[in-house]
Structures are given as structure tokens and as C-alpha cells.
Design a protein around this nucleic acid. Structure first.
Lengths: 337, 337
DNA sequence: ATCGCTATGTAAACCGCTTTACTAGCCCTT
DNA sequence: AAGGGCTAGTAAAGCGGTTTACATAGCGAT
């Protein structure tokens, strides 16, 4: 491989001149520029990134931490981040932590060790303070999708409260009065906010929120399944369920199916996220769509601002949207009470 | 950040000694080792990766090229590669090319420019020779899932032919005699092989392969949809369809649904891949499972072998498996001919 | 007393680029 | 004639490791 010095020699100038020319830090007369360009072309010169990185201390790479890249929601987010990053010349290292705290810490350490210039962090499990402390040592971090309490970095979230509110209202407008909520970990911001939106819609409609119909666990299909079974086991039953994620909703769907109940005839269901499979399940899932592409794009934009020493907004909330499909039916019967 | 020299000074030895000690290139007496260890701990020393990379020319990172990371099949593959890579101390840089040739070329160039030590390449579009030529310049490349003709690097594929054979036999055993195949790009190895498996099963059973019932296009839901519509438009209709990917199968399902046909009652369907959503759709999809985790793991293992100057197997075929769900029914009626 | 060997290191070059500080030459003023 | 300013660069010191080639001390053997 040709080096900068080779080019310089071939062009009859100093390496400094070539370096500065290539980085637009010097104005050179046309003749000189042409000689350098010719030398570069002739030698097929490509800058050695490693040397450049060592020299500048910049890597032009960021790290993206996701709990589970095989989860389509995070995969889409990752794709959006990657597209935006690539268009700005940044590479992205994706780590899929599987919710493993050690691997999350590893990723942060990578930032510390300057393998990357910045970090976009997604998590879906509550933090005991470890992550927060670690993250606070850095100022090139953006939090995406989910909060980590006590971390003071720019954050990109969606209107969780409003989303759950919309979903719940949709059920109420369909005549449902007995509505259960199945959510993820109760100490996750997204869950608390969605619960709040649920409660607001219920209260506004003069409906009670039954504590035994608010089931919090984790964002998994398995929990959606188990929670539904619990719900069905002890009558009275609700006539509709608001699931705080589409993964949960799938579990709900499965449990309902196994219990011989049909959706939406016997039970209406609203999900959250609008994952790609939401319209593929039976019935196609009415759900709250998160603007995934925009979230990813914006997260990178904020990180880039941080890298450029700007001061981006500390918190951006992106709007969500109700996507009506076929998992909600007008409530026909009389309520159980 | 503390440097190697800082550590050396604190330990009262030379930087050389510390470097060699850390890389196990020298035997040091206990007392010296302890001084160095203590200095490292006290200074919280972490080697500067960039310097190390410049110095050694190794990055301990690989690049993973996928057509579309938001596609769960590739996302799962990526997750598997990442897990394996991480356990060997390698970072993985994932690029999602969107089938864009330029971005694929970019990724290869990154290898050339030594941003990464090696490359695991996935593609799902036919190559005109450009990629092959580029890839052949490198010897740290592994091809995963799909072939690129003319590239002589280790490859990890599944038993495509056998998979399609299994799926077709399953349909034949259910009494179907009129079976159509909907596949991806006809010049892709996976498609050709799956077609061959289909033909073998048909021929073995003494069944004709009708050319107008073999529809090749691309691996997309849209094509599955369009192909099905074409199939339905001109009777006689087949009684069963073998789709060469679950994405295609989803499109088939949708078109069938829109035409008022029920699966498996009016039409049986077998997919390929066993993507996560395959069991979520209606009806749950009978499909051919690819051992995704093993594919990813193995691909990295082969790449690692390459990096270590070993000579891994040029081609590994991983077995597939029929997963019976509920999209295939015993054929009841009489055939259309 | 000297040789040679082992154990325990070290000096200095090098990886390829960036950047700071500096300069030679020239023209224009005053 | 001297000074100032501009153009078109350059020399050399990093960045933080790795590595090759060499060095010294101590010890046993001859």
C-alpha cells in the first residue's frame, strides 16, 4: 500500500502539504494540486485509517447498543441509525447484549477506550444505577427508546403516554368498558408512561382501573401469554386488552387462541410498536405505531451534534400513531358486572 | 488516559518490558510482574486500541454485510455472528446495504483499507461479476447463506435442495399433485437449488412440473403476492404452493386471503426459512427451518480460521428441517385435470 | 581469570498520519 | 532600504503502541 509519503515524494512536495491538502487545510495552486492528484491516482493511494485515527483520536465510528438485534423493533431502529450514520461517513458497531449487563458495560467501555466516538444506547431492562453511573462519565452518548434514570444525556423517546391513551380511547370508543393492561417491567419509563396514558383515558371516560387488570412483567411474548392466562383464570374477564408491545400482544393472541377465544369477537386487543409482523398475525393487529426510522435518524443526528460540540435538545418526543387493523371489535354484550 | 509509558515509569521498567509482558512475549520474575500489575491497576491503564492497531496492522474487528438488517432472517444471522465474534474478542461492523451494490462495494473496500480484518458477506441479489472480482482480491472473506458465482472463498450454505425436496414431499404426502413453486431470483444459487429439490420430489412422485407454475422473481413479500395473483388468474389452479422463503409465503398468504381463499383449506402452503413470524401468521406456517444460529457461528469460525492462516473447508452445507405447523392440509377434492 | 550462558531486561526504530510552528521568497508600501 | 504581508510551502514532534536487535549482571564451568 502506498503511503502519504510515497504520494508526497511522487508529487515532489512534503507529506505535510499532501496531508493538509487532503484535509482542506491549505490552499494550493492548481499545478501543485494536479501533481498531488496525479500521484494519488497513480499510486492508488488510500489513507491508512488506523494511522489517521491514532493521530486525530477520532474513529468516525459509533457504537449502537441494542438488547436484541434479532428483535425486529430494534433491528429496524438499528437499520435507521446505520443508514443515517453511513450517510455521514460514520461506521457503526452494533452490539446485541441480550439484556446482559456485562455486555452493556463492555460497550460503554469501548467508548471509554475510544474505539468509537460516540454511543447510542438502547436498553429494555431496569438499571440499578450501574449503567447510569458509567454513562454519566461520558458526554458522547444518546439514549434511544427507553430511559435510564439519572442519566443526563440527550434522549429520544416516543409519546408513550399519548400512545397508550390513543389505544385505550380506541377501545373505549368501540364500547369497551372493561379493559385490562398488560405491560413490561413496571420500573421502565415506557411502561410507566403507557400505564399513565391508559389511566388517563379510563379516568376521562369515568371508567375504573382495576389493579388486578394491570399486569406488569417484562416485554416478552411469554409474559403476554402468562398474563392473559392469569386474566382468563379469574372472572370477571375484561372485554379488551391493551398490550404495551406487539410482542406481548402476540403472546396474548396465542393464549386467547389456546383458550378457544377469538379476537376480536370474544376479546379486543390493541398492541404497541407496529412491528413488521403486526399486520401478518391473525387478526391483523390494531396497534400504536412508533416512528422507528425517524427515531433512529434523529438519535444519530443528536449524537453527531454532540460530537460537534453542539448542545442538542436534552429530550425529544416523537409522535405515535394509531394504526387500525382488525383486532378491535365493537363491544356487543353486556358487561360482566 | 494513562499510557504504556506511564505504566512503565510507575513500575520502574521500560515500555518495552510492559508491552511484551502484556502480550506474553516475555517471562518476567514475579516481583516485576507484580510491580507492573500494580501500576496498571493504579493508573487504570487501558491499551489504546488505535495505537495497537496501527502498530500491528490488526483491527480485531470484522465486517458483516447484510442486504437488510431489518429482515429478521438476516438479523438473526447477524446476532449469531456477533455473539460468536464477541466471544473471541472481535467487534463486528454491520452494514445493511439494502441490496445496493455501491454499499456492498464500500464494505469490501473497508476490508481493503484495513478497517477490518475480515468480511462475512451475505447478499440476496445476483452479481454481474463486479462483486466476485472484488472479493477475489481478498483472502479474509467468508460467504454466508448465498453464493456469489466465481468467488473462491469458504462458504456456508444450507441444504437448499434437500429443504425444497422435504417441503414438496410433505405436500405430496398430503395428497397434493398440483403444486406450484414461487421463488426468488432465478439466477440465485439458493433458488436454483430449491427449484431442483422441488423438481426432484415431483419427478420422483411421477408428477409433472408445469413451467407456468414455477414463478421466479425476487425474495420479497410483494413478489409472493403478485405471483399468487397471477397463479389464481389463470386456471387450472394448483392445490398447493411451495414458497422459497417465508417472506414470499406471507405475500402468498395475503393474496390468498384477499381472493377469499383459506389456507390450508383451499390452498396448502409451505414456506422456507422459519422466520420468527412464521408461527405467528394465520395459519401458522409449515416451513423449512434453517439453522440460523449455527450458520452465523460457523461463518465466524471459518473466518477466524482464515485469519489464523488455517485452511477451512471451502464449502459447508448445514442441514435444514421441516417444521410442520398448520398451513398444509390433506388434499380432499379431485384434481383439476 | 575468563568464557559463555541464562535471565532480565532496554534503546530506538517504526506503523502512517496530523499539526504546530516556522521559513523562504516575493511584492508592495512608505 | 526596511518593514509588512502574503503565498506556498516545510521540518519535526507527536499519537501510543510493537518489535528487532542489543545489553548487562550474575553465575557456573573450565
Amino acid at each position: 500500500m502506498a503511503t502519504l509519503s510515497d504520494v508526497a515524494e511522487a508529487a515532489g512536495v512534503s507529506p505535510t502539504a499532501v496531508s493538509r491538502y487532503l484535509n482542506n487545510r491549505i490552499e494550493l495552486p492548481l499545478a501543485t494540486r494536479e501533481r498531488i492528484d496525479a500521484a494519488i491516482a497513480k499510486l492508488d493511494y488510500r489513507p491508512n485509517l488506523m494511522a489517521k485515527r491514532l493521530s486525530t483520536g477520532k474513529t468516525e465510528a459509533i457504537s449502537l447498543v441494542t438488547p436484541e438485534i434479532a428483535n425486529p423493533f430494534f433491528a429496524e431502529l438499528a437499520a435507521a441509525v446505520e443508514a443515517e450514520a453511513q450517510s455521514h461517513g460514520y461506521a457503526v458497531y452494533i452490539s446485541s447484549t441480550g439484556g446482559d449487563r456485562d455486555r452493556e458495560i463492555d460497550a460503554i467501555r469501548r467508548l471509554h477506550d475510544q474505539h468509537v466516538d460516540g454511543l447510542i444506547m438502547m436498553t429494555n431492562q431496569p438499571d440499578d444505577g450501574t449503567l447510569a453511573e458509567l454513562l454519566n462519565e461520558h458526554d458522547h452518548v444518546v439514549l434511544l427508546d427507553e430511559d435510564i434514570p439519572g442519566v443526563s444525556v440527550p434522549r429520544v423517546f416516543v409519546e408513550n403516554e399519548q400512545g397508550a391513551y390513543l389505544g385505550t380511547r380506541h377501545l373505549i370508543e368501540a364500547g369497551h368498558r372493561e379493559i385490562a393492561l398488560i405491560g413490561g417491567p413496571g420500573d421502565l419509563m415506557s411502561v410507566r408512561e403507557r400505564l399513565a396514558g391508559f389511566e388517563r383515558a379510563m379516568t376521562e371516560a369515568g371508567l375504573p382501573v382495576r389493579p388486578d387488570w394491570v399486569l406488569l412483567g417484562d416485554y416478552s411474548r411469554a409474559f403476554g401469554h402468562a398474563a392473559t392466562q392469569r386474566l382468563l383464570a379469574s372472572p370477571p374477564r375484561p372485554t379488551a386488552i391493551l398490550a404495551c408491545s406487539d410482542y406481548l400482544a402476540i403472546g396474548v393472541l396465542l393464549a386467547l387462541q389456546q383458550a378457544g377465544l377469538s379476537v376480536p369477537h370474544d376479546m379486543s386487543l390493541v398492541g404497541f410498536d407496529d412491528m413488521p409482523f403486526a399486520e401478518l398475525v391473525n387478526p391483523p393487529l390494531t396497534t400504536i405505531r412508533q416512528p422507528v426510522a425517524e427515531m433512529g435518524r434523529l438519535a444519530f443526528e443528536l449524537l453527531l451534534a454532540l460530537l460537534n460540540k453542539a448542545e442538542p435538545a436534552p429530550l425529544t418526543r416523537l409522535p405515535v400513531e394509531l394504526v387500525v387493523r382488525r383486532s378491535v371489535a365493537q363491544f356487543q354484550g353486556k358487561t360482566s358486572r
